[in-house]
């Protein structure tokens, strides 16, 4: 026992070892393996061999560049939508929530205790051509009979934005909640009007929340394929749909792995550029 007191970091390493080993074996190594598999050649029938076929990268990029740019566009659009929807929501809860704060936060999170798939399928019911949303509008003659939301990019982006809204709202709330009231009072005493207080005090202090929220939304949004599959059509397929089909339908592992690697690399580069742009160091949350 006293040995542990003399070697405090030894205890730390013993506590860390099992979990860290697990992540090294089942998270970090598989990422490297994914890269290796992208350099395989062969087929499920003949077996695969590592041939170092780097040519697969330009090939995959050329063939699926459309899906990649579409994913980035849908992900970016959905992130902007979640920000526009989530900011006023977070603002109200943080500054005006009063004693209903926790109730409101709970109401924001509660829908997400329902299966992701079931929520998305519910939107399919709501957006259906003669469903809850469009049916009455068409009956009233406000929309032409041929108008549809399902199987359009709008439905896909809306579905993604809906599914990731809490990821944006909660970090924004945390950042806004932390703003000390006396800073806003000071701004008022220095004759800042409402807009200036918002623009010069609230918004800059909310920036870490904007940063965290947009990353937490954008990253899963770019890789998502459920919304495109359920709410979109073949023309709104994202890179995730291609990867899924490569692996699970046609067993073209090398191309699937190469596309996943490209997706991951693109996201890491994007995040680093964004971090530099926004200039926040809270990326890893490693403030302890």
């Amino acid at each position: 026992m006293s040995w542990f007191r003399r070697h405090p970091s030894a205890t730390a390493y013993i506590l860390l070892a099992p979990g860290i080993l697990y992540l090294l074996v089942f998270y970090l190594y598989p990422t490297a393996q994914m890269f290796l598999v992208s350099l395989w050649t062969g087929s499920p029938e003949t077996g695969y061999a590592l041939t170092g076929n780097f040519g697969i990268y330009p090939e995959a990029l050329a063939q699926y560049s459309e899906h990649l740019t579409r994913s980035i566009f849908y992900g970016g659009a959905a992130t902007i939508v979640t920000f526009l929807v989530g900011f006023p929501l977070a603002y109200f809860i943080a500054f005006r929530g009063g004693r209903y704060k926790s109730v409101l936060l709970f109401l924001v999170i509660a829908p997400f205790f329902t299966s992701f798939l079931l929520r998305t399928l519910s939107w399919k019911i709501i957006f259906a051509d003669n469903g809850l949303a469009l049916g009455p509008l068409k009956d009233a003659g406000l929309l032409p009979d041929t108008f549809r939301l399902l199987a359009t990019p709008t439905a896909v982006i809306a579905g993604i934005a809906y599914n990731f809204l809490p990821f944006m709202t909660l970090p924004l709330y945390v950042a806004l909640e932390k703003i000390p009231p006396n800073l806003l009072e000071a701004a008022q005493d220095l004759y800042a009007d409402g807009w200036q207080r918002f623009r010069r005090v609230t918004l800059p202090l909310a920036l870490p929340g904007v940063f965290a929220g947009s990353l937490l939304t954008f990253i899963p949004a770019v890789g998502d394929f459920i919304n495109a599959e359920l709410l979109g059509d073949p023309r709104s397929q994202m890179i995730g749909n291609v990867i899924q089909a490569r692996f699970l339908r046609v067993s073209d592992y090398p191309t699937g792995a190469a596309l996943s690697f490209i997706l991951m690399a693109a996201i890491i580069i994007g995040v680093l550029l964004y971090a530099r742009l926004v200039g926040t160091e809270e990326l890893t949350g490693g403030t302890t």
């Binding site: 089942f26 994914m34 998502d224 792995a257 991951m264 996201i267």
Partner: peptide, 19 residues
């Protein structure tokens, strides 16, 4: 190492484990 799995799109997590 703890942050990265949360910042990796789920599809990449699934694909890398499958590989």
């Amino acid at each position: 190492l703890i942050f990265l799995p949360m910042a990796t799109p789920e599809i990449v997590l699934g694909v890398s484990l499958l590989t």
